[in-house]
Amino acid sequence: MTGGYGAGRFSRGIAWATVLYLVLPITIVLPVSLTDQRFLSLPQEALSLRHYANIFASPAWLAAIGQSFGLAVVSTLLAVAAGTLCAIGCWRLSRRASDLVRVLMLLPLIIPSIVYAVGLYRWFGKLDLLDRFLGVALAHAVTGIPYVVITVSAALAAFDPRLEQAARGMGASLGQTLRWVILPRIAPGIASGAIFAFIHSWDELVMVLFITSRQVFTLPRKMWDGINENLDPTMAAVAMLLVVFTLGLLWLDGALRRKRAA
């Protein structure tokens, strides 16, 4: 968009300041994580990796990382399975018929997680799912469905419905059509949805604060305690690892999107 009209100096100034405000504070985590001191500070005399070594020597941190990873994998699988089928159903059915379902699938993005967490605390008490791996996995899966529905719907929007009709017309069953015609075409969209559902579970804290206590102790829960109790450079090292991990996942998503576009 140009045509003799571009952004002026004033708006460019604010835009630059805003981007720096968005990005710079996060980068502070790197030098702090490499400090040679015992407290949160910039490195004084030398760079040190000892706070990273602390994480890998600590059974508590490793257990939390392992548990978060397991939860994220299980809840992502559930969310991807349910969300993908739902998006395909909504796509094929008339807009009016499936409108209610579409709105329903967006609710977890609209309703604050604190409200859901309060309800879960009571509901899971009845179902005996409090402080259980399965309970957290289910809660994260349900709230991860919207991300999958959104990305898969976007992928389906670019899919020619005549391919599906042709397959059915030549006698393919619904299952065969899904397996051989639809799913291969939208696989990159599903992968994107899976990545976002994974990040959602991996980062989720509010529900975990309500429905877990000792048996399930995730990485965000451990970080939350760390921030509220003892602010030490180990936290910065964990934060740095998380940033690198998230950047890796986003890079993967970008690579998949480029592949889809090609």
Binding site: P25, L205, M223, V243
Partner: peptide
């Protein structure tokens, strides 16, 4: 997409 906890910690 950076964890909200990481951002709060940075602040």
């Amino acid at each position: 997409w950076i964890s909200v906890l990481v951002r709060a910690f940075a602040w």
